[in-house]
Amino acid sequence: MGNGIQAIHPFVMFFYYMCLGFFAMFFNHPIFLLAGCLALIAVNLSHDGGQAMKQWAPLMVTMTALIIVINPLINSRGMHVWFDFFGKQVTFEAMLYGVVTAMSLLMILLLFVSLNSVLNGNKLLYIFARILPRTAFLIMMSIRFVPLLKRRLTEIQDVQRLKGMTMTQGTLSERAKSGMSMLQVLLSWSLEEAVETADSMKARGYGSGTRRPYIPYRMTKSDRRWLSYLLVAFVMCGTGGFMGYGKIVIYPELGLLHLSSLDWFVFACGMAVALFPLFVEGREQLKWNYSI
């Protein structure tokens, strides 16, 4: 996991994902969204060769296909009628709207796939610990409890199986009952434990000062440079978006799909943001291969 993007400061990465999420939900020009999806696919490929993306692929493909197919069938707004489908008018507008919505959702899903692999729990909580320290601490502790509780649950299951309580046999209500009984054992066991954990935390000085993160991420010079680069590109792109570039009118009648030169400028700024992880990786590669 030592590649370039992992070394970037969490704040910079978080800002990058916020920008991209904003683009995905803000722009609705199909070319913008398509380019955004492609850029994110490339970014995901650069993380791990598309391993994580493969897991999500079935969900993403079905969701995209469903929206594209269903929208024109249930919705016949728009002026340009394409063909009749069992007495229902399929319009070009509804078709395009389905495509745009599907791509926007796809882009958000791709973004989260990348986010899950780059901003792992530790980094995400580092960001939120600045804003909501206690909540972040609570969440972090809760995440730590999950593997512990799973271990305890297997132990409980092993013991209860000897008593004849299983989740695999019996009627639905019997199985649900035995599952809940196990959770009840887990509850009374773990709540007592929780108080003990809290007392030992207190003995070691919890609450005696502000908490600092376990891994101190430092904002380096290059982090700051990347952040300002992202900021500039995002502001230009956002201003263009608010002035109406990069967006099209679909309902009630399709507007022009043509891109003016200013549209292309906004597009270039958007791509400069979206491809940022690739620039980071590319720079690393260049340094590795060609520096003396």
Partner: peptide
């Protein structure tokens, strides 16, 4: 004003609620 014990207790309850899905995976 929330004490350490309360924070740990809430974290534990949330974790149990999240883990509760595990034994019911078959249903």
């Amino acid at each position: 004003d929330v004490g350490g014990r309360e924070v740990v207790l809430l974290a534990m309850l949330a974790a149990i609620a999240a883990v509760g899905r595990v034994p019911f995976a078959g249903l």
